[in-house]
Structure formats: C-alpha cells, structure tokens
Design a binder for these strands. Structure first.
Lengths: 210, 210
DNA sequence: AATGTAAAGTAACATAGGTTACATAACAGA
DNA sequence: TCTGTTATGTAACCTATGTTACTTTACATT
C-alpha cells in the first residue's frame, strides 16, 4: 500500500503529510462492480484512489441512471469532499469499474489538514477543479452530442480507464449507463461496426483505431 | 457598497477579513444582459455577488449554448475560483441576468486568505459544494426531463431570480437558453398556456401559480 | 391612420430515438 | 449432443423534437 501511496501521491505531499496519511488512512480493497457509495448514503470518510477506476453515476427518482465520469489513480471524490464538510448525504453513486484499492481518510483529519498542510489544501482545491471540468464535459456530452456520438465516446472512455481495447459489457449495461434502451444501443453499435470503428462479440466489444 | 457587503457576507466573515475585503475588493456595477466573463477569457479576479443575478452558460464549438444555473446574492463563481488557482481559461460564460453589483477580489489575495482565514477557506469550499449541486441539477434537468418540463422549470427559475412572476423574454431567447428551436418553444409555451400555467404576451410571459 | 419590423402562431413534414415483439445466435451445463 | 438461458439482431411502429415555410399579430415610427 505505501508504495502505491508514494508512487501516486508522493510528488504532491510533503513527508510529514504522507506519514500521517499512512497512519490514519484505512486501506480498502474493493471488487469490480461493487457499489462503494450510493445515493443518500452518509459520508464519513474520503477515498484516495490508489489503483483501479471508479464509475460515478447519477440516478433520478424513477431509478433511471446515467454515468457522469470516472475517477482514476490519483483522484479523489469531490462530492465526498463536500459531503464530509457539510454532513450531507451523497447525491451520486460510485461503483468500482475495476478492482479498486482505496485509502480512506476520516472526515476529521481531512478538515484538520486543510489548515495544517498547504499541499493538502491545494490538492483538495485542485480536485474540486478537476471534478468541475468532468461535470462540464458530462453536460457537453448529454446536451450537445447525438446518441451515436455519445455511445462511441462512452466506449473509448471505458476502454481508456480499463487500459484495454476490449471492453466486457453487454448492450443492456451500456443502455443503462447512457440512460437509453437496449434496442437503440444494439442498432447504433451495428452502425459503428459497419463504419469499422468496433468489432461486436457476445459480452465484449473491441474498439478499433483507439 | 459596504452595507451590501455587511448585509450579505457579514455573518460569514470575521471583522478583519471584512475590512480586507473592503480595502482590496473593487466595486463593479454591471448592466443587465452584458457579458461578465466569456469562454476562453483569462480570469484574474473572483467576483462576490452583492446584488442581482448572473446567468451561467456553456457553449459548444458550433456556438450552441445552454443555460446551466444562476448565481445570486452571496454566491461566487466556482469556475472563477479554480481558474484563479490554476491560471486557466474560463470554460463558461457569465451574463448579467439583472443589473448586478460585484466585489472583485484579486487572485493574489484570494489564495493568501485561504491560509489566513478559516472563514474564507470554509466559504470557498462551501461555494464549490454549492456549484457542484447546481451542476448535478443541470445534469438531471437535461438528462431526465422532457422539453416541456425543462421549459416550465426554466420559466419558474427565471421568475425566481428576477423576483417577479412576469419575465421579459422572447421565444427565441428561451430557445437559445435551452438549446432548441423557436418553433418548439412556441409550441410548448402554447401548451403550458392551455394548462393555465402561464399567460403569453409579446415580449413577456406571466407565470401563474408560482 | 398607414407602414415597417420583430415576435408569435401554426401547418406540414423530417428525423432521432424509444417501444414492442419476435427471431436468431452464443454459450453453459446436463 | 441436447437444452435452457441470456445476449443480440431486426422489423415495424410510435412519439418527441427539429425544420421549413408561411401567416398573423403587436407595436413602434412616421
């Protein structure tokens, strides 16, 4: 664990803070596809991603969901951040996209370090900034792109965070993530295949020209 | 100016910080409908809203735009915040929805106060949190609502920030704000009128049952 | 009052995306 | 190999939204 911490956060934080992180942080290993945080969960600690990727999604009252963005190594969850500050419920769901290793930082320390360590303060603010940018990209995607473009972007993004040009997913799962129906996805996927952008197989899709 | 500052921010900040705000903050009065910040502008100061409301919008490469949310008294712009930190270009456009009074805080002070004043640090983090919530609401709206629902929400939100049940706007302007076409808006407005939710007039709309 | 202009109304049509219903293919396990 | 199950393919249809084209209305200016 301390190697991953050193490797991914070492250049950000000073010695003393890294030591504290190791002391108070709780190491957690999570299997792919399990839910890490759900909507309306109370948040009491903030996760630093040591390895793997996390899918962040939003769900409306009718249970329709939508993928917003992914967290990767070196990221933290800004919603968690602000939930920690304000004792508020989570407004998003976080699901392990791959196997994930986390370092959980207790709420109390998080706030304490903001005053104590300049580098921590910068990290937190930078994280907020990054998450705002992800949100803008998410808005752009759903507001300005047509479904076939969204689909292709989705496939490329997913390939990216999984470090593989083959993604394990069914058409139904894609439809859930993009908040549309399976038939629509099958139709558009077939179109992408005809354009030689992807190869379709049962339970997996290969992205060509990455 | 100092009355507005005291009134809207007095309960947030300690005496000393309020004094500094008055000393270094530059008072700015902006007419309704003028652009305060545009996409790709470099940001060198951060605005505290003293009075009025600001419309925050996003535009894609083809020039299609979309309203994201409004800033009101007591708010600050989180994008500006993070742009200030990182010397980055703005990704959003800010347009005065009403006449607006601002207190512009230079970038340098902003960062300095983060370490110096606990209350400033809390304000900045709270602002980020508020803006994240606005983004989530924006995503919900465009992803999960149909156009007639979005339109009705738009009208109510606009009435809210303008403190008036009559809003001065043409169908074309609404279409631009919602990233759709004028004909669609006229059609849906007519529908809302038939449901007795609004009254249509040339250049203005009255919202009933607020 | 006559006229010009921008706003709003509306019909007719085009298209993307959602829905239903069913057929076929891939794979797992007996 | 046979069989059941899940994934995928696909046609036919439906609906919301976008587009084009034109008319009518409100209002300001002369």
């Amino acid at each position: 664990m301390s190697e991953l911490l050193q490797q991914n956060y070492g250049f950000l934080f000073q010695e003393e803070l890294l030591k504290e992180l190791q002391e108070v942080g709780v190491y957690k290993k999570i299997d792919a596809n399990s839910t890490i945080i759900d909507i309306d969960n109370y948040i009491t600690s903030m996760p630093l991603v040591l390895s793997g990727a996390i899918k962040i999604m939003r769900e409306d009252n009718d249970g329709d969901e939508l993928v917003l963005y992914y967290l990767e190594v070196g990221d933290t969850c800004a919603m968690t951040l602000s939930c920690c500050m304000g004792q508020v419920k989570s407004q998003i769901r976080a699901v392990a996209e791959t196997d994930v290793e986390l370092l959980m930082i207790p709420k109390k320390k998080m706030a304490e370090w903001l005053s104590k360590y300049q580098s921590w303060q910068e990290f937190v603010l930078q994280s907020y900034h990054n998450r705002m940018e992800e949100f803008i990209e998410a808005v752009d995607t759903i507001a300005f792109l047509k479904m076939d473009e969204r689909l292709y972007k989705y496939l490329k993004d997913k390939a990216m965070v999984n470090h593989s040009e083959v993604i394990q997913v069914t058409h139904q799962q894609i439809a859930n993530d993009l908040h549309t129906s399976r038939v629509v996805i099958s139709r558009l996927l077939k179109g992408l295949e005809k354009e030689n952008k992807i190869e379709l197989h049962r339970n997996h899709i290969k992205i060509l020209q990455l």
